[in-house]
């Protein structure tokens, strides 16, 4: 594979195309080692009310080498998401924002109309918007056209681990969108990450599939390899599918039938 296959965002070059969440790990040391072993360079965080008693924050325990992608997780409306984005920018001194506006608590499915409206506003306000959205090609294209840095379709609901549910839509999204596409939610197995990377997606963001596994550190390593394998396949030009078999060993010189 081309060694200079960087993942570029905002003028920065990243070697890894695996973006890791920081939540739900059994403890901090497992989190730290999982991130390290995954070789991720971009990690996601949220902002929440400070705990007036413990008053610690996640950045105090994480290596400074990571680029932070803050999110608006848990927001149900444009107003809430905009304020959260502003708080993220103030707190973390970054204009990067993973915009996440959910429609209901049961499914955590993205609210497309609120996401489109809010993305437009935030882009105008100078944010670099990474928009979490449904696997609807039209929505993804709209988000790209209004200036999002990346569209981030789910492949199945957040934390479900259901993996790719609509491969056809994912193919269309790649066809419709010229810019960056990052899968955001629904990865369960390493093969899910490989699959979307084989489709030509630019990166994979995951959290639960590693953090909630039996062995998060080992799963982080597996996800790293899965993303690399998928990317390698995509760049290498995979063969076309054929309805019938095509032998690989030459028939020429084969001993006679008997």
């Amino acid at each position: 594979m081309n060694k200079k296959d960087y993942f570029e965002i905002d003028g920065k070059k990243f070697n890894s195309r695996l973006i890791m969440g920081t939540s739900l790990y059994p403890n901090q040391s497992v989190l730290i080692e999982s991130l390290e072993k995954s070789e991720t360079e971009i990690i996601t965080v949220s902002v929440r009310r400070i705990d007036l008693k413990s008053q610690t924050n996640i950045l105090q325990v994480l290596d400074k080498k990571y680029t932070i992608l803050p999110n608006t997780a848990g927001c149900f409306s444009s107003k809430e998401a905009i304020l959260t984005a502003e708080l993220c920018r103030e707190s973390l001194n970054t204009n990067w924002i993973k915009l996440e506006i959910i429609a209901d608590y049961e499914t955590l499915l993205p609210d497309s109309s609120e996401t489109i409206k809010t993305s437009e506003y935030l882009v105008k306000k100078g944010f670099l918007v990474f928009a979490y959205c449904s696997d609807d090609p039209v929505t993804c294209k709209r988000l790209e056209d209004l200036g999002c840095e990346a569209v981030m379709p789910m492949i199945s609901p957040i934390g479900s681990g259901l993996g790719v549910r609509n491969e056809h839509n994912l193919e269309l999204i790649r066809e419709f969108c010229n810019g960056k596409i990052i899968v955001d939610a629904g990865v369960g197995k390493p093969s899910d990450a490989t699959k979307v990377m084989e489709l030509g997606y630019d990166a994979v963001l995951l959290n639960s599939s590693v953090a909630r596994s039996i062995d998060p550190i080992n799963m982080a390593i597996s996800m790293k390899h899965a993303v690399l394998a998928g990317r390698g396949g995509y760049l290498s030009g995979m063969i076309e599918k054929n309805k019938y078999a095509q032998h690989s060993s030459s028939m020429k010189g084969k001993i006679s039938n008997f």
């Binding site: 969440g21 920081t22 939540s23 739900l24 790990y25 989190l31 996601t44 965080v45 949220s46 902002v47 929440r48 009310r49 400070i50 924050n57 996640i58 950045l59 932070i68 803050p70 999110n71 997780a73 708080l87 103030e90 707190s91 973390l92 957040i158 934390g159 959290n207 639960s208």
Partner: peptide, 26 residues
């Protein structure tokens, strides 16, 4: 309310103040 405004921003009774910091997130 940005950091540069904290020194001059006046609080009134019944104001709702939110103080946040980074937390784990996905």
């Amino acid at each position: 309310v940005t950091k540069s405004e904290w020194k001059t921003f006046k609080i009134e009774k019944n104001d709702k103040i939110e103080i946040v910091s980074p937390f784990p997130g996905g």
